[in-house]
């Protein structure tokens, strides 16, 4: 039986605003095994992004339990969470979130700085990952000099550079046209085929059709969890 990567039990997230508490997630249960490829769907405001941020250890739940790679995240301090983000997770944002003043090579190698690798090793591994997403020739360009699709591929290379067990992508194709979307999704499929677990937040059914399992959020609750039967193939 495959190893469990994510185990979420009775997860709550409530924002406390001046107007009173605003519940965003309510009693969410979710398990995911190694090698799965999951799409999280739902209308905007359904809590799917918040859920993703909690999975990515960028935000903390207000209730329930989240176990990542066998570790209960509630027991971990800030530095330990940073280490999880650095070594177990790769996070891909809708807005790419590349450092605008660093070259693509430096952007991709940045997680390795915090992993304590030498410059030579960083550059070598970053170049490998850039090559993997087909952008090695832009290694010394700045993010502003390449297209959005290319930037997202750089962001994916950055997420992959420290060989994570799990890739989390929050609307990775949200800012891309359909053609570049397909390219990016093809990249995720390839990663999943290589054994990396992938979770994608999306509201596009076309994008979700590339995945193997679909989870639907509505009003902060997980209302549906189904296997994808009409998977686009080859993805």
């Amino acid at each position: 039986m495959a190893r469990q990567v994510i185990d979420v039990a009775a997860l709550d997230k409530t924002y406390h605003t001046e107007a009173g508490p605003v519940p965003v997630l309510h009693q969410v249960n979710f398990q995911m095994d190694e090698g799965e490829f999951v799409a999280i769907m739902g209308p905007s405001g359904s809590g799917k992004s918040t859920f993703m941020n909690i999975l990515g250890c960028l935000d903390r739940p207000t209730g329930g339990r989240y176990t990542l790679d066998g570790k209960n995240t509630a027991d971990l301090d800030r530095d330990a969470l940073a280490q999880l983000r650095n070594q177990v997770l790769g996070f891909v944002f809708q807005g790419f979130n590349l450092l605008p003043r660093a070259t693509l090579l430096e952007n991709v190698g940045l997680p390795l700085v915090y992993a304590g690798l030498s410059a030579a090793e960083r550059n070598q591994r970053a170049l490998e990952q850039l090559d993997n997403v087909g952008l090695a020739r832009f290694a010394s360009s700045l993010p502003s000099q390449i297209s959005g699709g290319q930037q997202q591929r750089v962001a994916i290379a950055r997420a992959l550079v420290n060989q994570p067990r799990l890739i989390l992508a929050d609307e990775p194709t949200g800012n891309l046209d359909s053609k570049t979307s397909d390219e990016v999704m093809a990249l995720f499929c390839r990663l999943n085929d290589a054994g990396i677990s992938v979770v994608i937040v999306t509201h596009e059914p076309d994008v979700a059709r590339h995945t193997k399992r679909r989870v639907l959020f509505r009003d902060g609750e997980m209302v549906e969890d189904t296997l994808v039967t009409d998977r686009s193939w080859p993805c």
Partner: peptide
């Protein structure tokens, strides 16, 4: 601040 956020998201600790 955003840059700090990005760095933390990919694993920078507070002391980094």
């Amino acid at each position: 601040t955003r840059e700090i956020g990005i760095r933390m998201a990919i694993g920078a600790r507070q002391r980094d």
